[in-house]
Amino acid sequence: MSIQHFRVALIPFFAAFCLPVFAHPETLVKVKDAEDQLGARVGYIELDLNSGKILESFRPEERFPMMSTFKVLLCGAVLSRVDAGQEQLGRRIHYSQNDLVEYSPVTEKHLTDGMTVRELCSAAITMSDNTAANLLLTTIGGPKELTAFLHNMGDHVTRLDRWEPELNEAIPNDERDTTMPAAMATTLRKLLTGELLTLASRQQLIDWMEADKVAGPLLRSALPAGWFIADKSGAGERGSRGIIAALGPDGKPSRIVVIYTTGSQATMDERNRQIAEIGASLIKHW
């Protein structure tokens, strides 16, 4: 067993022997301040990774656009098919120029040779490549099948209805392509620590998230040296922004954090800054 596999296998073990965790309302004060600064709703939840206990939450059962955070769930569904012998990570998928959609920095470079399922998941999570996500959605049967996968996990809230990039439209009061912070946090925890996926697939999923290259201005910008984070960000229309993450000190994750916002007129930089400040408060009061 590799060191990384050992780390993920012992996530519940280490967490069980940690000192009790206590909620700190100071972080919620910052979440509410972010709402004021952005002029928009902000949803927040913080779960203990081992027990699933909610440590703090704000608007945990209000719907927010998922945006690209759905790509972690998508690759979880792909990995479940791999575990069941219905898919192979090494299978190569070929596609054409007509398949390319807006923001496809990886797939646009491989029109000639195609990409493997493993490479597509890596591109979808680490670079948020939209064509990679659409190609992977095709392998599982489309958005409705991802929703069905989530329902089978016990998540009857999260739903995907459309493809990239239309799913980022974020129309107010439109339930399409949305989740709730509580539902997303619980589902992410199941994917990373539950028995739904094999140990190898859980490790692969967290490795992809740990290698995320496009979430630097968010929670990662607030992390002290030595902290662990595996995350996936999302951005959408109407001032929408979000991030889902597993993080913790001492090089291992111990909490799940989900943050979503929508309806702001603020710039992307300002949305990023507010999420980073929430992260800084979380870490300060850990």
Rank of each mutant, 00 (worst) to 15 (best):
S264V: 02
L28R: 09
A200H: 05
V42Y: 13
L191F: 13
V31N: 13
T147G: 05
R118Y: 07
I244D: 11
L136I: 12
R118T: 08
N130P: 04
N134D: 02
A148V: 03
L49T: 02
G52M: 12
T116M: 02
A215F: 12
E237M: 04
Q86K: 11
R118D: 11
T158S: 13
L150V: 10
V257I: 15
A123R: 05
S128A: 15
G114R: 12
A123Y: 09
N173C: 12
N50V: 11
A211M: 07
P181Y: 05
L111E: 08
A246G: 10
G242C: 06
I54A: 05
E108A: 07
N272Q: 09
P217C: 10
H94M: 13
L192E: 15
P249Y: 06
M127R: 13
D129W: 02
A245H: 13
S221L: 14
A132K: 00
L192F: 07
C75E: 01
E169C: 00
Q37M: 07
A84E: 11
N134E: 01
G194L: 06
G239K: 04
T107Y: 05
L38M: 00
I93Q: 02
L49Y: 01
L74P: 01
G234F: 14
D129S: 02
I206Y: 15
A230W: 13
E108M: 05
A200K: 03
C121S: 00
L197C: 02
D36C: 05
L47F: 08
A183F: 10
L188S: 15
G234E: 11
L160E: 14
E35H: 04
N98W: 10
V78G: 01
S201P: 04
E210C: 12
E195Y: 00
N152F: 09
V82P: 02
E56D: 12
T158A: 13
E175A: 04
N134L: 03
W163I: 10
I244P: 09
I243M: 11
T116A: 05
R118S: 09
A235K: 15
L197S: 09
M115E: 06
L192G: 13
P105V: 04
I206K: 01
L135Q: 04
K190T: 15
R255K: 12
I283D: 14
R189L: 15
N152H: 13
A245E: 12
V117A: 06
A222T: 15
E61L: 07
A84I: 03
A183M: 02
R220V: 08
L196C: 06
K144F: 07
A246F: 08
D212G: 14
M184C: 06
S264H: 04
K213S: 06
S57I: 01
G154F: 03
R41F: 11
D48T: 07
V117D: 12
A77W: 03
K284S: 04
E102Q: 00
L28P: 08
H285T: 02
K232T: 14
R176D: 01
L197D: 13
G236Q: 00
R176F: 00
S96H: 05
P172H: 04
I275Y: 15
G52I: 03
L49V: 02
R241T: 14
P172L: 04
G114I: 14
T112M: 06
G114K: 05
Q88G: 05
L79V: 02
A211Q: 07
K109E: 05
D250W: 14
M268C: 15
I125Y: 04
L196K: 02
P65K: 09
A280S: 11
T116C: 01
I243R: 11
E210S: 15
E195W: 00
Q274A: 10
M127S: 12
K252G: 09
S104G: 03
L79F: 05
R63W: 11
L223D: 08
L89N: 04
Q204P: 00
E169T: 13
K53D: 10
V78I: 10
Q265K: 10
C121T: 00
R92Q: 08
A182Y: 10
G142A: 01
R92A: 11
E195R: 00
I256L: 12
T138Y: 12
R92W: 06
Q86T: 08
S281E: 12
A148S: 10
T262M: 02
R271H: 01
R81I: 05
D36V: 05
L120I: 05
P224F: 14
G236D: 00
P217F: 09
I171H: 00
D269S: 12
E164D: 00
G39K: 12
T116R: 03
V106M: 08
Q88W: 08
Y103A: 14
L167R: 01
A170V: 00
W208T: 04
D99T: 10
G194V: 03
I243W: 13
V157C: 09
R176P: 08
L135Y: 03
R271P: 14
P143I: 09
P181D: 05
L146Y: 05
L89A: 05
R255S: 10
G141W: 00
D250Q: 13
Q265C: 03
P65M: 07
V101F: 07
K252S: 08
D174S: 01
G90A: 02
A225P: 08
I206W: 09
L146Q: 05
T186N: 12
I125H: 05
S254A: 11
I256R: 12
Q265L: 09
A34S: 09
E195F: 00
G279S: 14
L111Y: 07
D174A: 07
S104T: 02
V157P: 10
D231E: 14
H110Y: 06
F228T: 15
G76Y: 11
R238M: 07
G263V: 00
Q37G: 05
G239T: 00
Q37P: 13
Q203E: 04
L205V: 05
L146S: 01
I45F: 12
A123I: 07
